[in-house]
């Protein structure tokens, strides 16, 4: 995921093995589906140690990787559209406007 390494800060993400849910590596060395729990590495050196730590705790997750984030008003926001979608979900309503009667 070299394209995600542009930001100033990094987090580690993965998908949970059992159900594929997006999870983030936390300060306590665990995984959480809440993006706000993600531990943020604030320089490349910290990121380099963060990823092996996450991989070491990855028995129930699939292929952890680093994601570049920027701090906006102190809160991390993923740099890439792909990772923003993983955090925020689909960017369109699943059903067409006015189609809810068919759901």
């Amino acid at each position: 995921m070299a394209k995600n390494l542009r930001g100033t800060h990094q987090i580690v993400t993965a998908n949970r093995l059992s159900d594929g849910v997006v999870v983030f590596f936390t300060r306590s060395g665990d995984w959480s589906p809440d993006f706000n729990d993600a531990v943020v590495a604030d320089d490349p050196a910290a990121a380099e140690t963060l990823l092996p730590r996450a991989r070491g705790a990855a028995t129930a997750t699939v292929e952890p990787y680093l994601v570049a984030v920027e701090l906006v008003d102190g809160a991390p926001v993923p740099v890439s559209m792909r990772e923003r979608i993983r955090v925020g979900g689909l960017t369109f309503p699943v059903l067409a406007a006015g189609a809810s009667r068919y759901a």
């Binding site: 998908n15 093995l17 059992s18 159900d19 594929g20 849910v21 997006v22 028995t59 699939v62 292929e63 792909r82 979608i85 993983r86 979900g89």
Partner: peptide
């Protein structure tokens, strides 16, 4: 075997793929 850790993701991936199962952004 995958959930118990007997199979690695690398070994399991082609097995799940030939059964139509992908891992996408949000879920399988």
């Amino acid at each position: 075997r995958r959930l118990s850790g007997d199979l690695t993701e690398e070994q399991f991936k082609p097995l799940r793929l030939t059964n139509g199962l992908y891992l996408q952004l949000h879920a399988y």
